[in-house]
Design a protein around this nucleic acid. Structure first.
Lengths: 341, 341
DNA sequence: CTGAAAGCGCTAACAT
DNA sequence: ATGTTAGCGCTTTCAG
């Protein structure tokens, strides 16, 4: 039997198990298990023999068996709101950077994920026996009594989760940055279009507070939504009701895109007539079409901190509901300019 | 002990098992298992007793144990390219619609997912013992010999996977639609900015073929990338080299957004000077800023068909590498207009 | 329709 | 440093 046929399992034969690997390598099953989990207490030659056998048999450890026998699954679940809200992409990458070093896997689910099979993404993850949960969306009612496993809540939210740490970008500070930037450019007639979430609320508060401190009043408009359509609608209303406005701050880049459309439709130009400021530093902001000045929430760093918070819990840290605030950053592009004198 | 305390597990106590449920309900373990999987051979009263016990104990079946003992995991894996390519969102929803009826769960991974833990997303899914795999990205070399489980390849790709069915939107037909629309509006000097993937290649072929058949030659520009930046860059080049151009077709909506920026930067207007056509019918296309005429690939339907193909394989269909083509649809918005006479 | 018994493939505590 | 022995919590025959 040559190498090729050895790696092809004939019809009906079941997958190779840790047993087969042990036999092939001439060692015991537990030695194979040790090699699999990278134990240092294995001689180099034995390890080599096991690795060779694994390759030869095309062996793949069964996650189910490992999960059942072991005390941990090595997997943490991340619950996001909507795949279309791309902030989670950087967040996830930051988390993985931190968790990868400990060999921890990440699983993602959005709110409606497998809705017809599991009662909720949380139920799904708990049935999976994840070692921890990151809630990167508004907490659902079922989380009201806490989650049974180490958990962190990511982002500014309207509710908290008992027992969960909170890691978030400092949205209020981001609002400050936006206000300071516009004030520094000489703007005094400023509007803000916002939405209904916890982040939007904080951003608005930081923005309005900073303006107020400078003795500048602002017009704030918005509803629950934070889409491009909402940005379009409310910016149009805002500019029609306040024609003297020289700058608009939107709660996120999508809303800023809508704002840009509203501004254009009213026959005005960015930034000559209206300075436009977004939030998130999404691909939209760096697009050639918008070249948007925006606040970068540094979601990569938020993800890292969320990962670290979870690891601290795994290591037995008992700090109760710690909060970690990541400093946002202003990215200046071409959509803001000194106010026309 | 009241109900409240009964549902709270004291420190150190392990999760309730099927055993505890059986005892609580006064039945055997296997009866509980039958109830769990919705067997019809269970009397209504016994079922009620079991359900009550499950609720009382806050019992959650262990997926790991079920997977290990059973013959299937009830989970299929979907491998996508990048979370930022939002076409997968509709695709996923279509799949879930179809798979939900059979109680099948879906797990998603992008190319770099858990890269430091698993060798590849495919490895990760196989270790998880998924029942099937949907590859919604360009196949990786490791798939060259086929995947050991039922699999379907979604989208137009440069390579195939032995043994996998193919389900895709008919991108060539979409290219035809785009060309016919522009020809119908009287355009004769037409440019196309494209990218390197299998879909882009098909779209370009369909577009160029249809124009050619009408006796119209087109200028096609592009490289590997399909981002907004690429659309910007190549549209700029195209229009500078061919100032007589009256219409531009972009391989996707992001590229079209870049094209819109290039057109604006050259002092031209959409659609008065240049008609602009995108592809995907993404949120970008329906934005107020672009109001883009675009081709809708009907990814929801593609997802449904992919789910059905997988189910057919599960049911033992032996059709070898069937191909399913979904008809795309043109969505007309404000970015295209009759050519100026 | 129901109960008893035998594993699924692994980990972990224990012996060597 | 390596082998032995119990299970992990469920599904699945097989008898009642």
């Amino acid at each position: 039997m040559n190498e090729k046929t050895a790696s092809i399992r004939p019809q009906g034969a079941s997958r190779p198990t840790i047993y087969d690997v042990a036999k092939q390598a001439g060692v015991s099953k537990s030695l194979v298990s040790l090699v699999l989990r990278g134990s240092p207490n294995v001689s180099a030659e034995r390890r080599a023999a096991v690795d060779a056998a694994i390759a030869e048999l095309n062996y793949r450890p069964s996650r189910a068996a490992a999960a059942l026998a072991g005390s941990r699954t090595g997997t943490i679940g991340v619950i996001i709101d909507d795949y279309r809200n791309l902030w989670f992409v950087d967040f996830l990458q930051g988390m993985q950077e931190v968790l990868a070093e400990r060999g921890i896997r990440v699983a993602v689910a959005d709110r409606s994920f497998n809705a017809h099979v599991d009662a909720s993404p949380l139920e799904g993850f708990l049935a999976m026996r994840v070692d921890g949960i990151v809630v990167a969306s508004e907490p659902s009612p079922e989380m009201g009594d806490g989650i049974g496993v180490p958990s962190v809540l990511a982002g500014n939210r309207l509710r908290q989760i008992p027992g969960a740490d909170v890691v978030t970008s400092d949205d209020k500070r981001g609002g400050n940055l936006a206000a300071d930037h516009l004030l520094g450019l000489g703007h005094r007639k400023i509007g803000h279009v916002t939405g209904g979430g916890g982040s939007a609320r904080e951003r608005a508060a930081g923005f309005v507070d900073a303006l107020h401190e400078a003795g500048v009043e602002s017009v704030v408009l918005g509803d629950a939504g934070t889409s491009e359509q909402d940005g379009f609608h409310f910016t149009k209303m805002l500019l029609q009701a306040n024609p003297e406005t020289t700058a608009v701050f939107a709660a996120n880049d999508s809303m800023a895109m809508g704002a840009a459309a509203a501004i254009r439709d009213l026959g005005l130009r960015v930034p000559e007539d209206i300075s436009l400021l977004g939030y998130d530093n999404s691909p939209l902001a760096s697009s050639n079409l918008l070249r948007l000045t925006t606040v970068d929430a540094l979601n990569l760093e938020v993800g890292r901190q969320a990962g670290l918070a979870l690891l601290a819990r795994f290591d037995g840290a008992e700090q109760v509901e710690a909060t970690c605030l990541v400093e946002p950053w202003l990215v200046v592009r071409g959509s803001t300019a000194r106010v026309a004198s």
